[in-house]
Amino acid sequence: MIEVKEIRKRYRRRNVLNGVSFTAAKGEITCLIGTNGAGKSTVLKAIMGLTPVSGGTIHIDGQTLMPELYEKISFVPDHLTMPAGMKLSDALRFMADFYDSWNEKRADELMKFFRLEHAVKIGSLSKGTAAKFSLVLGLGQDSDYLLLDEPFSGIDLFSREAITEVFTSDLIQHRGVLLTTHEIGDMEHLIDKAVLLKDGVVSQSFHCEEMRSEEGKSVIDVMREVYRA
């Protein structure tokens, strides 16, 4: 379980996060929803230790972040984070070199599934292809948690479909997935739990199916209530 408690963050004299708390459980897909600039990416970066927070705590399975945990938790940012001069094969080699939890066989399967070529330079990838390769790097690790920043934004329809397919596959079974989005779109039925971020705090956090059974509201209905108010 990823537990985020009361985290705060100031950036350029603005309180981006004002005490954000939520949890993301293993075996579930949790979606962090918020308008652009609501600080969704900052939350993910804070969990991954890529940016300091000015208050609050973050625990992953009860532990605070330490280098060894990077074997257990992988992050797919909204852009590819390998040097442009590397070939795809170099990047895979790099991952295999540095991560004990790297699963070469799975990475190969994913490369085939996304039809990615090993000899291509990273700098020459289109946005959709880069997003797919980014996902290969994230899923190639046998990690317990997977964090994805806007995995569907700005990429073509077919890349979206391919990525959606990953979400319903056994690739993410038993993992805890935390992803961000600013529009729920076709993800409505993919996610277990929604966490709505507004004005630097969590204004709603619910399991989608419970919300539907108990209040007869879709995620979009709740979003309307939260963001239109």
Partner: peptide, 11 residues
């Protein structure tokens, strides 16, 4: 492609 993300996430 900001490599620093990856470098900081190395175990």
């Amino acid at each position: 492609h900001t490599f620093i993300y990856r470098l900081l996430m190395l175990p």
